[in-house]
């Protein structure tokens, strides 16, 4: 008799992969929107106001995103605990680098680094938004008669320490993505002679373009301060 999907090792990995796919998609749209802050402040303000005030995004997609992230985090921790228990006595001599890469073996470390960064990121952007909209009840998106979004973003990146933390965190994000992207396909049962090598190349591209794109955006704002 089967344990069911969510109670089995294979099922949990599939759920981990599905939540990973969801977060990959979210990250891409986050990046595209942030990229507009480099291209046009007005366009960035328009999109941010839409994202910040649209009912579907705020009250349906945002809670799903928070759940997806917490699920990915909790499941990752749970799986790591099970994995650690599966080998109570470690080898006196072990050479894991002979057969696997660092990123694939240290998803927990890179994941925790991303999670710690998200604490700062939430403190910087998400919590002030929640305060403005849900506590103060101000949904206008205005400050002194003008959209505040681009100005707030630009202002945050005047501090070199904050910019440095963001850049380091994005490197950890890249390391996490470089394994996570292609690993999610394998966990979900997708392995194809022709397409898997393409997916691995896409994973490398994604893990370079998105984190370094975010680094570029952070540095752009730092170096264009008045």
């Amino acid at each position: 008799m089967s344990n069911g999907l969510s109670n089995s090792s294979v099922g949990r990995k599939v759920l981990m992969a599905l939540s990973g796919f969801f977060l990959l998609f979210f990250l891409m749209q986050h990046f595209v929107i942030n990229l507009f802050s480099v291209i046009s402040a007005d366009l960035f303000n328009e999109i941010s106001h839409f994202m910040g005030t649209n009912g579907l995004i705020q009250f349906v997609l945002q809670p799903i995103l928070i759940f997806g992230f917490l699920f990915h985090l909790a499941m990752g921790m749970y799986l790591e605990r099970k994995n650690s228990a599966a080998r109570p006595i470690k080898y006196a001599m072990d050479k894991p680098s002979e057969n696997s890469n660092w990123m694939s073996r240290n998803m927990l470390i890179t994941g925790i680094m991303v999670m710690l960064f998200l604490g700062l990121h939430f403190y910087d952007f998400w919590l002030p938004e929640i305060k403005t909209k849900f506590i103060e009840g101000d949904w206008s998106g205005l400050n002194n008669g003008e959209f505040r979004y681009w100005e707030e973003l630009h202002h945050k990146f005047q501090d070199i320490i904050r910019v440095s933390i963001y850049c380091v965190a994005f490197i950890f994000l890249g390391l996490h993505l470089s394994h996570g992207f292609q690993s999610a396909f394998q966990s979900a049962g997708f392995n194809h002679n022709k397409y898997t090598p393409i997916i691995k190349k896409l994973a490398t591209l994604y893990a370079i373009i998105i984190p370094f794109g975010f680094i570029f955006i952070a540095l752009f704002h730092y170096f264009t301060q008045n």
Partner: peptide
């Protein structure tokens, strides 16, 4: 396999 206490796959390929 799960009952025996083996760990999960992280797709390291080792």
């Amino acid at each position: 396999m799960d009952k025996e206490g083996f760990g999960n796959c992280t797709n390291t390929g080792a």
